[in-house]
């Protein structure tokens, strides 16, 4: 799973998709995940990174991560696989 190359997230959590003209806002955890995805990290690594920063259990993270990435795909921010 990879974020499209031309998409960047700013420090305020602002995401702009230059090919569609749409923009989005993400919360800090969403921002972290997008940045990890930009670095082509796998879910295991991302989970590890998030769980070392936040109080969270495995199942909750996996569930939320799945939902979040589904939304990213929905908004066409992910590379086609």
């Amino acid at each position: 799973m990879r974020i499209k190359k031309n998409i960047a997230v700013s420090d305020t959590g602002f995401i702009f998709n230059p090919s569609s003209g749409d923009s989005y806002s993400v919360n800090p955890i969403g921002m972290d995940i997008v940045r990890h995805l930009k670095q082509n990290k796998e879910i295991v690594e991302i989970k590890h990174a998030i769980m070392s920063d936040y109080v969270c259990d495995d199942a909750t993270f996996e569930k939320d991560y799945y939902d979040f990435t589904m939304m990213l795909r929905n908004y066409k921010l992910l590379e086609d696989e």
């Binding site: 602002f14 923009s23 806002s25």
Partner: peptide, 11 residues
């Protein structure tokens, strides 16, 4: 500039 839109939209 889109930066301005970003600012008012996010903060």
């Amino acid at each position: 500039d889109i930066n301005e839109f970003e600012k008012i939209s996010t903060i």
